[in-house]
Amino acid sequence: MKKHLLLLVALIIATSASAQEFYVSASGGYSISSAGILTGTSLNDGQTKATNHYGSYGEGTNFQFRVGKMFNKTFGVEIGFAYLHGADQVIDSYDNYYATSVFPIPNLGDSDPATLLVNDVTKGNAHARAYGLSLAIVYNFNEHIYGKFGAITKVGGKTEATATNVVNVTLTENVYAPAPAPAGTIAIPAGTPIKTVTTDVEQEYHGRVPLGFIAALGYKHAISDNLNFFAELEYLGINVTRDNSEYTKFTSVDVSHLGAPTTTTTIDQLPSTEVTYEDSVANPNNDPSVALSSVAPYSSFGLNIGISYTFGKK
């Protein structure tokens, strides 16, 4: 690796003597997902059909500003700064499971354990707002066609998620009143809704500093001696590992259908609004402020269109 770096430095020094052009460029474009990672699973309104959703947080509108230096007519180097205004990604999820509980019968005591069906559905979306920095080598195939490849990293930004979670609990079997009620007395019939818990959240996620790969193939056309129009196809390969997150909104309302009082939990009542993500967590169920990390895909294919201005060209 050290030999390669020394060779690159020597090449830059050698070609700097014949350096020809210094340029700046500005462009805008749109990127589509190239990762195909599962972001969520949605249900139709009747909850009879589930659909997987795949995507990348790199999808969306981007704006780029670049500064470049051509060492000769063929080779150059370019530094770029970009902003991504990501498109919404579906993060819906659902789960059905069974639980057991006992129910107090007025003036009679507790019932025997009964089975409950818990329907847990989350509907939400998330999008990225990210700033990136890239360094690439530029190669001109001819006067119009060029290519470039290099490295890219994220230097700021976040992923914003908004979701509503609804948990419906339903009794799946009859609850019989205990003695001294007559045997077989139904206190609560099967199918009775027990409670509904609705939670609205907004959460911001921040990631560790990543390193990815960028490559592009473009076409440029001279408008004047110093001004060029260009269009390029760009591939971005990068993933961001989750580092921490913070609730910016949290409201949970627990409504009982059996007469118990409604309870509401707000963000001010949470023991912690921040979560730190680690690669290894001891006793993960004991501390809600620490969780296992995961990787968010940002890879994309994009089309950029812009103009560049070359200084010192005669």
Rank of each mutant, 00 (worst) to 15 (best):
Ile32Leu: 15
Thr196Ala: 04
Gly218Val: 12
Val281Gln: 10
Val209Asp: 02
Ser101Asp: 11
Ala163Asp: 09
Gly132Arg: 04
Gln20Trp: 10
Leu217Asp: 00
Ala136Pro: 01
Ser256Leu: 03
Thr266Gly: 07
Ser252Gly: 00
Ser280Ile: 04
Leu8Glu: 11
Ser18Tyr: 14
Leu7Thr: 12
Ser34Thr: 15
Asn168Gly: 08
Gln203Leu: 02
Gln47Pro: 00
Ile145Trp: 08
Asn239Arg: 09
Ser56Trp: 01
Phe213Asn: 02
Leu236Tyr: 06
Leu11Lys: 02
Asn168Cys: 08
Ala179Gly: 02
Ser56Thr: 06
Glu78Val: 15
Glu78Thr: 15
Thr266Met: 14
Leu211Asp: 06
Asn72Pro: 05
Leu133Ala: 15
Leu6Pro: 00
Val24Asn: 03
Asn228Gly: 00
Ser245Ala: 13
Ser289Glu: 04
Ser34Asp: 10
Ser16Ala: 11
Gln64His: 09
Gly150Asp: 05
Met1Phe: 05
Gly124Arg: 06
Gln269Ala: 14
Leu133Asp: 01
Gly302Gln: 00
Pro106Ala: 09
Tyr98Ile: 14
Thr164Gly: 01
Ile12Cys: 15
Lys154Arg: 10
Leu217Glu: 00
Glu21Asp: 01
Thr251Met: 11
Asn285His: 04
Val175Thr: 05
His144Ser: 07
Val295Trp: 01
Glu21Trp: 12
Tyr146Met: 01
Glu278Ser: 13
Ser224Trp: 02
Asn244Gln: 09
Tyr30Pro: 00
Leu117Val: 07
Gly68Tyr: 10
Tyr309Asn: 00
Gly191Val: 08
Val295Asp: 07
Gly157Thr: 11
Val9Pro: 01
Ala222Gly: 05
His53Pro: 03
Ser224Asn: 09
Ala163Thr: 08
Ser300Arg: 10
Thr100Ala: 12
Glu204Asp: 11
Phe141Gln: 00
Ala87Leu: 08
Glu246Gly: 07
Tyr309Glu: 03
Phe81Ala: 03
Pro284Val: 00
Ser300Gly: 02
Ile267Tyr: 02
Gly306Trp: 05
Leu236Trp: 04
Val281Gly: 06
Lys220Val: 03
Pro104Ala: 15
Thr248Gln: 07
Ser300Glu: 12
His53Ile: 00
Leu227Gly: 03
Gly212Ile: 12
Ile305Asn: 06
Pro182Arg: 08
Thr198Asp: 05
Asn174Ala: 03
Ala26Val: 14
Pro106Ser: 14
Gly218Phe: 08
Ala130Ser: 14
Leu303Trp: 00
Ala10Leu: 15
Pro178Ser: 06
Asp287Leu: 05
Lys73Gln: 13
Ala177Phe: 06
Asn285Met: 10
Ala126Ile: 08
Asn286His: 07
